[in-house]
Amino acid sequence: MLKNLPQSVSTFSGDIDGILYFIYAIVGFFFVATEGYIVYSLVRYRRKDGVKARYETGETWREMRWIIGIVIVVTVLDFVIDSKGAGVWAKVKENFPEGDVRIKVVAQQFSWTFVYPGADGQFDTRDDLTVPRVLHVPIHSKIRLILTSKDVIHSFFLPEVRLKQDILPGRQINAWFEATRTGTFNLFCSELCGLGHTKMLGSLEVQEPADYERWLAETTKEQLE
């Protein structure tokens, strides 16, 4: 079921995949065991002439002991899954690093725009760099994203990075990631946002730092002209 996961290109994508595989192992075991037991009992206890069913109400602790045992296991596994997940969640969504690069993401029906602060490191100044559609980031840097929307709710989804965050209009929502592989990756809007939702695509361009700086310089020059 998980063999189709897209490649993993960020510092936390491996952690999220780890949780997925961990849950997969637990769930897979219960799936096989339970479905197997259902099929087994349908065959084993099928109606036979002269064989009467067992009278067993399950109202005593003794009769319930198997169920109680399994349920204790389930409860323990629940907490294991949650405690493992808590760390990953905190890493992705709570404990943000300050970020080497700050980029403002502007979502609107039905396009993505990325604003780079320019030389002064401040947004909403004259040297802001506005880039449509393609999010350029340097590899191995902590990217801090400031997500904004001009109209309705959009969702910023980088499948290869394993990052997804809804964007609410009227608010600034933070997200971060650090890419570990260069190349061109996908960017989707994963919240129904209207007629052109299906075409609200962008892409993520992870570059070597040198290439990134060169791209930044060229684009800055273009925009100033």
Binding site: Y45, R47, R54, W66, I67, V71
Partner: peptide
């Protein structure tokens, strides 16, 4: 699991 246990020993 109680439903599974209801199958056990039945005459299905």
């Amino acid at each position: 699991f109680c439903m599974l246990a209801s199958l056990r020993g039945g005459s299905i």
